[in-house]
Amino acid sequence: MGHTALAAAGTSEPVCHDFEFEEIYDSYADFVWRSIRRLGVDEHAAEDLLQEVFVVVHRRLSDFEARSSMKTWLFGIVLGVVRNHRRSQRRRRVEPEPALVEIAPVSERDHPDERSARAEAVRVLYSMLDALDDEQREVFVMAELEGMQGTEIAEATGVNLNTVYARLRAARREFDQAVARMRAREGWRSGCR
């Protein structure tokens, strides 16, 4: 477990900090967030899942061994939490949970002029990822979006290297096809096919 220290930080009351954990949060919160989102979790649920991931991280920090990279270790935890979430979504077959906290992109349509190009780029990427099945998607996100090595992916997903590469090949094919389909639709819409 991370070392805990007392810091008086200008107040009379000592404040407890778990510096190691906080450092990990600050360094990897964005990585965890985008990984969860890239795996197809909507923005509202992603907040809860990020929280779950870091609760697990906090609990298991003492088990972390430097033989794997922090990123690989974290992605393994992300995968566990996201897979659980998918299972419970499937089991319940209900509408997505009501909004916990509204997050900015919900209002994107109200402000189409702002941040639109970047938000649109993300939207397009995620809709292409939606074309992949869950297993392909996991491998694709790690390999193509995070630049992780085959062995790291094998470790995080718990499948062997050959399977990783087979899924990656299939995922690339699906992604390319999804992009081609999107372009075809665009061309059809604008009448210049």
């Binding site: 970047r118 780029a121 397009v124």
Partner: peptide, 19 residues
């Protein structure tokens, strides 16, 4: 087989915008 240049471009244009 690697990704098509267009697929690669879609990935690159979203980079940094997801945080």
């Amino acid at each position: 087989m690697s990704l098509s240049p267009e697929s690669r471009a879609i990935i690159e244009s979203a980079r940094g915008a997801e945080d």
